[in-house]
């Protein structure tokens, strides 16, 4: 029911109809909310019960009987656009998919396919998550803004990528930033470590003349944006292959394919460096961290049938991909919510 009252507050834009200071009666508020929703008939009693439930979650309050006022939490709907979209994304867009996961598990037992998820069942469509949301501009914008609320939370900042790995120990080296989007992570690392060069690979859709022009001029001789699909054989020979927030989006069978696709370019000693979620050993993390990671793990199941992994799972992934990967370790940098996972290629190279 938390989701119901929250969804109603979000969908009907109730926060916009409550004065920032002072109070408003349920009657006047209902009239304003109905007017703001194309004169949809909601009714005072329906709005009142939804709001009184929301109030048990500190969203709005009733300082005098019959009068509604803002709380700090309800004001955030007006002040924090990413958070507002996060609420809409969770309560509106993901609610039905979540309710359909168990049915999806029965329809497609133990599926690792991104097209056999709660999202596919809930929305009666057969596309993988990202293709599906891109069909609907409002949906995909909400998703992007919602992820900003998540990424903006403590522990996901770029400083943890820069400080969390001993990049300086690599000396003069080339790093391939796999699925590196428009290069913003490589830019940050390159700025801090002048001896490193970067090749930022992503799919053709990410490579327009404008995005390539966005490489800061000071970094232009050390950071290149190129086109590559990480499921196809790697051709860049480099010291490090870096993956940030890639593997948690894929089920094991696809992750194994991504690792195997590197092999043609791997030379002895080449490193695979992953910056991604790593599940804590059960009971070892604090409540909030454990719950955040467990929720992320379920979130990956709901949307793409992928998952977060614990240390043993990461080791097993490399082992399954090829015996010549030597798994090093998983560590969580101080203050970071994302871990580093490192392995090395012990084979001779093709």
């Amino acid at each position: 029911m938390n989701s119901l009252s929250l969804q109603a507050v979000w969908d009907f834009n109730v926060a916009e109809c409550v004065p920032r200071t002072g109070t408003i009666s349920y009657e006047d508020l209902t009239a304003k909310v109905e007017a703001a929703n194309d004169n949809l008939r909601i009714g005072v009693l329906n709005l009142r019960r939804l709001l009184r439930h929301a109030m048990t979650n500190r969203i709005f309050c009733e300082p005098v009987k019959g009068q509604v006022a803002h709380t700090r939490a309800s004001l955030l709907f007006l002040e924090d656009e990413p958070l507002k979209n996060w609420v809409g994304f969770m309560c509106n867009d993901l609610w039905l998919p979540i309710a359909n996961v168990v049915s999806a598990m029965k329809k497609w037992p133990a599926s690792e396919e991104p097209t056999e998820t709660g999202v596919n069942l809930a929305y009666g469509q057969s596309l993988p998550w990202f293709d599906f949301i891109q069909q609907d501009q409002e949906f995909s914008e909400r998703y992007n803004l919602a992820m900003k609320a998540h990424g903006g939370a403590a522990g996901y900042g770029l400083e943890h990528v820069v400080k969390g790995y001993p990049w300086g120990d690599l000396g003069k080296a080339t790093v391939v930033d796999m699925g590196g989007n428009q290069g913003y992570v490589s830019f940050a690392i390159a700025e801090a470590f002048p001896s490193l060069s970067f090749v930022v690979q992503d799919q053709a859709g990410m490579r327009t003349p404008e995005t390539i022009a966005k490489v800061p001029s000071a970094l232009a001789d050390r950071v290149r944006l190129t086109t590559h699909d990480f499921f196809t054989p790697q051709t860049e020979i480099a010291d490090v292959y870096f993956f940030r927030m890639i593997f948690h989006g894929f089920a094991d069978r696809y992750c194994v394919r991504i690792l195997r696709a590197l092999i043609p370019a791997l030379r002895k000693g080449a490193r695979i460096v992953i910056n991604d979620g790593a599940l804590p050993e059960p009971g070892t993390a604090g409540y909030i961290e454990e719950r955040t990671m467990r929720t992320m793990d379920l979130f990956m199941q709901v949307t793409v049938n992928a998952r977060e992994r614990e240390a043993d799972d990461w080791a097993a992934l490399f082992k399954e991909a090829d015996d010549r990967f030597r798994f090093h370790k998983v560590w969580l940098p101080e203050g970071s919510r994302m871990s580093f996972i490192e392995a090395e290629w012990a084979g001779d190279g093709d």
């Binding site: 938390n2 958070l83 979540i98």
Partner: peptide, 18 residues
Amino acid sequence: PKEGLRYLAWDVCTLGSI
């Protein structure tokens, strides 16, 4: 309030209990 609202919204993800 901010973190609270963020968690409240994604507690729709309490699949574990379903």
